[in-house]
Write a protein that binds this DNA or RNA. Structure first.
Lengths: 335, 335
DNA sequence: CTGAAAGCGCTTACAG
DNA sequence: CTGAAAGCGCTTACAG
């Protein structure tokens, strides 16, 4: 069924039907209502394909991401979907399987083929590379780590201030009396210093705490476990900050296996406040980041870019909040 | 840039370009190569929109699901994405916010508007309702719980045998010497008996174990925690099977708070084998389900339906595997 | 093996 | 306020 069928049934030309479904003002009220009634009656739905081809606009957004299952990524996706659905935008997903330049470009092409806007999650090398490689002219929004310097208005980016969050978590542990805080990082997205690392380091420095040797990190509990084993072997370690809650899970497990009590002997704090973290034994002190809000903000920004409505300002979306639970406490030798 | 530009540059008609990009056989090799070279040189990409409009086919699939972040859902999604990308299909997502009939139908319409196939994850009332409400003629594949009876060939469904999995997990606990096994269910998707519940019950029955009173379940750790508190209060409880690992997390936490040791006093087993489960303290005995494989199978089936190639047979995708870890052991009074 | 015509279902100026 | 024409970039028969 096409607008011609509707036109015939409503006894108008198909252009008038087009005007009605596009909310064009210059249609007599009586005509509009007749057409609307006919559309309802016939169950007509405009072909999004034909609309996209004829108009050159597509009301769709594709998310480019290296991962769809990790808590942060999945929740950003959820926020984007929510906002997209609210705006009647179709949502597509393209996964960046590797950070390889060729395959990243291939994924961008595939995403661009859909004709809609792009949201790139740039938390890892693949995402960072993708965000850089998007050709000019394509509407794109980046979900990024805290930038080192404020990005220009030509960079529609959103982020949560994870540098400040790492700073706060580190300060929390130091304030409990720990001499210093070890850090198990998530993989850095670029060659520079990751914001979480930077925040942790800054907090140590301003407290005059010595900066411990770097630890090898990762994304999941297995990496946390490996890091935890090494840290557990060092009796001087009394406080560990982890780049995410999955790492913290593995670290706590390793400490437990080594017979070191949490938080009695070692305090642990995570990052993200994943849904399970409050139910771990011991429940995990963590920094809550509003990933869903971040996703919604990313879509809102893209929507602004595409419809050229609002002026675009890159901005942090929310202030992360430290949630103190059982896993952090004073060091063993505290008074 | 269109096929006309390519045609002009290659000095052929645009129909010939169309033939070349569609792999039509009747093109002279020399012509084909010239056109291909021109396409490469100009960086031409066929408009998917125009292709879809003209051909009526769209090489895309939309996943309809009530959730995108829970481990099972997210991993199925990941499997579908992988397979779709491999087949050069675009992947869309539509979330069923409520199980309300009106909004479910609205989501189906939105998904159908894209012109591609549908995969519906029917693990919950919203998904089940959506799968039922898809109008005939639309290519659709269902990812379902183990069906009570084998579905007909007109129902392209995939599933893992979670009934057998629940049976096996229950038998494992009984074999350790427990008198019976309590079950904390995930919400059932329909009014009938859920397959996990059925498998658990069948195992109890065939072992002659008494069936305990039903426990209120849910999806997340909070629900597990609530259920766990109630179960912890009953000293007769020595073994608990949970409908997923998140529930188990909450249950273990509640047992811990009540001072009941796992597995010393109470054994706990989960379902899904989520990535963190092996790193919990105690590490969780769980049933591993191949959700990614399920997603890939769902896409393969849809691909078959859309291209009308393979004959469609609904089928279970893989055999779940029980992973025994620390959280399950003999009951306290065992010899 | 290759070209000319019609059409997919819309939108976008252009008339009136 | 409403209609007739051209076009978006392809595909699908139909000729030759």
């Amino acid at each position: 069924m096409s607008i011609r069928d509707v036109a015939a049934a409503a006894d108008v030309s198909y252009q008038t039907v087009s005007r009605v479904i596009n909310g064009h003002p210059s249609v007599r009220t009586a005509t509009r209502e007749r057409v609307l009634a006919t559309i309802e009656e016939l169950g007509f739905r405009r072909s999004v394909t034909a609309h996209a081809l004829a108009s050159g606009r597509s009301r769709s957004v594709t998310v480019l991401t290296a991962n769809t299952t990790h808590y942060g990524y999945a929740t950003i996706l959820q926020g984007i979907e929510e906002a997209a659905r609210g705006a009647s935008y179709a949502l597509g997903i393209g996964v960046l399987e590797t950070a390889d330049e060729r395959s990243v470009r291939a994924e961008i092409r595939r995403a661009a083929d859909t004709g809609g806007g792009l949201i790139v999650i740039a938390y890892d090398p693949a995402g960072v590379r993708a965000l850089r490689a998007v050709p000019a002219g394509l509407p794109v929004v980046g979900v990024v780590e805290t930038p080192a310097s404020p990005p220009g208005a030509d960079r529609p980016w959103v982020w949560t201030d994870d540098r400040a969050a790492a700073h706060e978590a580190t300060r929390h542990l130091l304030a409990l009396g720990h001499e210093t805080v070890h850090y198990v990082p998530i993989p850095s997205s670029t060659s520079g210093t990751a914001p979480r690392t930077a925040g942790w380091r800054a907090a140590l420095r301003s407290a005059g705490a010595p900066e411990p040797r770097r630890v090898q990190g990762g994304w999941g509990p297995a990496a946390g476990h490996a890091a935890g084993r090494r840290l557990a072997a060092d009796p001087a370690v009394t406080a560990i900050l982890c780049g995410n809650d999955d790492l913290a899970l593995g670290v706590i497990r390793a400490l437990h296996e080594a017979g070191r009590a949490v938080p009695g002997e070692v305090s642990v704090a995570g990052f993200d406040d994943a849904p399970g973290s409050a139910y771990l034994t011991s429940s995990l002190t963590s920094v809550r980041l509003d990933f869903a809000g971040l996703g919604r903000a990313a879509f809102a920004l893209l929507h602004g870019v595409v419809e050229q409505a609002a002026p675009i300002t890159p901005h942090p979306v929310s202030v992360p909040e430290l949630v103190v639970r059982e896993s952090s406490g004073p060091p063993p030798d505290a008074p």
